[in-house]
């Protein structure tokens, strides 16, 4: 490999590390108390996508309109279950930002394992980092290995 290529690899490595790990300035919104009502029925939550700010104290009021359902929040490991017609509450501090799936943790029928919602705490920073890495990877590979078509057709 030429010197230029080594340069590019090192540069790409550094850029990749920055995209993957650099701390970002977080927009600080004063933490608030939030109560979100989520209805569960076979096999969906509504609303299915919740958004809160980092630091918020979140209370999810889970109401089931058919059978017993649960709600388990990935990444937080907290959960709650609700009998039909009854409202139960789950309160936790949203101290990790990112996008987390929540899912039913009470076997409730055929599509139970796919009964899924999402809670966004602040922005989905890991997604942005992943998208950045993808574009970087693709660009670097294109530059690193020069277009063979032109090189050969000449």
């Amino acid at each position: 490999m030429s010197r230029k290529q080594w340069f590019l690899i090192i540069f790409a490595g550094l850029a990749g590390a920055v995209i993957a790990f650099a701390p970002l300035p977080v927009r600080v919104t004063p933490p608030a108390q939030r109560t979100l009502r989520v209805e569960a029925n076979q096999f969906a939550y509504s609303p299915a996508v919740l958004a809160v700010n980092p630091g918020d104290t979140v209370t999810i009021e889970l109401v089931s309109t058919d059978v017993v359902h649960g709600l388990y929040v990935d990444g937080y490991g907290v959960s709650v279950t609700a009998d039909p017609g009854q409202t139960t509450r789950l309160t936790f501090t949203a101290d990790r930002s990112g996008s987390f799936r929540f899912r039913c943790n009470v076997t409730c029928g055929a599509l139970h394992t796919f009964m899924i919602g999402k809670i966004q705490v602040g922005s989905n920073i890991l997604l942005w980092r992943a998208l950045g890495l993808t574009i970087l990877a693709s660009l670097v590979a294109i530059i690193l290995f020069p277009r063979p078509a032109k090189a050969q057709a000449a």
């Binding site: 992943a130 890495l133 993808t134 990877a137 693709s138 590979a141 294109i142 290995f145 277009r147 063979p148 078509a149 032109k150 050969q152 057709a153």
Partner: peptide, 23 residues
Amino acid sequence: LVGGLLWTVRTAQKVGTEVRVSP
């Protein structure tokens, strides 16, 4: 996924070399 894409890009580039078409 990022690793897979790199692998894919290399594969496409090798095909490009063979058929002499920009990948």
